[in-house]
Amino acid sequence: MGFFTDTSICIGCKACEVACKEWNAVPEDGLSFTGMSYDNSVGLGADTWRHVAFVEQRKPLGHQETGARDLDFRWLMASDVCKHCTHAACLDVCPTGSLFRTEYGTVVVQEDICNGCGYCVPACPFGVIGRREASGTAAKCTMCYDRLEVGQEPACAKTCPTDSIQFGELDELRERAARRLEQVHAAGTSSARLYGHDPADGVGGTGALFLLLDEPQVYGLPPDPVVTTADLPSMWRHAGAAALALLAGIAVAAWRRGR
């Protein structure tokens, strides 16, 4: 199961942020004015599992007419979430098995097992997961694991006033996303693109796909994320070689007679 977040119909209301917090009892995440357009939650982390980005740009949106000033303008809003990567670095590196893959294909932290090593945090190429100060454990979107188990859709998808967040079977969502992209292109927004839809990408495709209206990095997303463990076999080989070199080096150094 997964998400298709269609940012072209997002109204930036942040209901997804709030519904997520209500459902999961995620604590408040700081009360500071950032000046980042209407975004005061800054980004995903242990205490923000859905995050709505606001981007003001001097660019046109399709055929949209934006008024008096001789200036192209558009205001992009996009709700970000854990990608539930097919190849999930957070999960791979977790030493306790706290992060695991559920029967829904989602990636979930088990708080009762997490020892707070924080390894998952730098492993995630999307900057999603975080370690909570208060509890000392890692936290992120669970795709509402408990709701899925009783046949309910995730809280954020359910609440979304414009259905910008769509929940469902990934295959179907991928198809829908492709169709939707054509529609948006046909309507004039040529900068639209899909993100996370490609099973051949660096993380094996994500469980949360997006239709973006600009390049991923504009929304704070990595343009070409690669699961770090893709290189792990090579890392192990290099580490092994280095270990052998160390062993051999010391042995040689000691066997050489002399003072």
Partner: peptide, 29 residues
């Protein structure tokens, strides 16, 4: 499809690539 009506289409102005980040914030946590 918001923005489908309105004026005739204009192409993106060249050379207007954004700084390439979201308010200069890190991508990674």
């Amino acid at each position: 499809t918001p923005g489908s009506a309105g004026r005739g289409s204009r192409s993106l102005r060249p050379g207007e690539r954004d700084a390439g980040s979201y308010y200069g914030l890190p991508v990674l946590n």
